[in-house]
Design a protein around this nucleic acid. Structure first.
Lengths: 224, 224
DNA sequence: GTCTATAAGTCGATAGAC
DNA sequence: GTCTATCGACTTATAGAC
């Protein structure tokens, strides 16, 4: 792996583990066993590193999200979407750990973020609309946008929320499944009777994952 | 006003306006026209200032929240509760601007926060339960806790969320009313038919407040 | 209580040799 | 590409005079 990629990789791992504000360029260099000067040969500054990670994040999500086939959009398709969203947020969780602070310090990143949010908001509305057409949900048209937005709020806030109520101020993988359960629950009042059966199955599935024994993250496993 | 109180007051204003991480003890002192040494005579360190503000926050909420009378708990009572919650979060919005970062740096504050959250969570469950008894909402018992929790997630995340989607990375008072609308919307599927009429009225009321001309906050008005 | 002055440390970033 | 060495800016916090 090239040094530039190594830096991005190490930075992501350390940011996720310790929070971006607590990780200096010196830390990243030391962690890789390279000099600070070398790091600054590859990146103009710390912001530059974060920007690169954000680009990876957007690409990662684009790769892992199959645009829903024009066929039937079932609850399962919706779940795959939420799965992939939460999975990505786990992988890049430092971004959501203190998003306001991150964005206020980097207007360029903020612009990119807003653009990205606009796209995913539209995608969620589309998904709900398709669920509607397939009789999975029954939502009044005037409520559809707002439900999609409510789900989005919980989605982007989840990592941060779980961090605040965690005794050791950390998120674990099981927290992610709880997030999926939470968004499922928010859709529950709108499910049609036949979809409610599927809801119960999915709920049980994610509940099992959410209550699985919490594995203390291994920093080496995280980073390499 | 005593110097100690002046410091707390100025710190709160600056934290809200600029974010706690961007405000140093020197900034606070300079803003008040006192010396850094003087500030450190009154507070051991910055953490000490934040802790004092948090205590004010808890007291403020305790004062402004009238424990719901044992009489009828209507939708209006619930709204007064949400009103006062959001109002408090506006007044102390810097706390929610980057809560995870704040709490991870101050374990003592984290403990206090968790205790406080536990109390308010229980209060929200109680409120929903009372609404249930008064035929305002109709919620299956197994869903009551989860709905209360969902509302709480949106509540504590709202300031942060609105900051991220704001073009200038700031929250305004109108954002607060949108937050109330959002929590109202989350309860909507559970309202009984007669309560839905009240819902529409309240929705219109807060919608007017939310879409009122945005007033650019005056830093002097904020601080003095 | 309040001030001035400054120590002690951190962090981002660069210069210049190899 | 990588290293060593270091600068400058900023921040917290304290010592000691008034």
């Amino acid at each position: 792996m090239k040094t530039k990629d190594k830096i991005i990789h190490a930075a992501l791992g350390l940011f996720n583990e310790c929070g971006e504000r607590n990780v200096t360029t010196n830390h990243i260099a030391a962690h890789l066993g390279i000099s600070p000067g070398n790091l600054y040969y590859h990146f103009r500054n710390k912001e530059d590193i974060i920007d690169s990670i954000f680009d990876q994040y957007v690409n990662y999500l684009a790769d892992n999200f199959q645009p829903h086939s024009e066929g039937d959009v079932t609850l399962e398709v919706m779940m795959r979407y939420l799965d992939s969203m939460f999975e990505t947020m786990w992988r890049f969780r430092f971004l959501y750990y203190s998003l306001p602070s991150l964005l206020s310090r980097d207007p360029n990143l903020h612009k990119k973020y807003l653009k990205f949010q606009e796209i995913s908001a539209q995608r969620e509305v589309d998904l709900l609309f398709s669920l509607q057409k397939n009789n999975v949900v029954n939502i009044q048209m005037e409520d559809l946008d707002e439900l999609a937005n409510s789900i989005k709020v919980v989605l982007v806030s989840w990592v941060s929320y779980r961090t605040t109520i965690s005794k050791d101020a950390k998120v674990y993988k099981t927290d992610i499944y709880r997030g999926i359960l939470k968004t499922l629950f928010m859709m529950k009042p709108y499910f049609t009777e036949q979809a409610l059966v599927d809801y119960q199955h999915m709920r049980e599935y994610y509940l099992r994952l959410a209550t699985a024994e919490t594995v203390v993250p291994d920093i080496n496993g995280e980073l390499f």
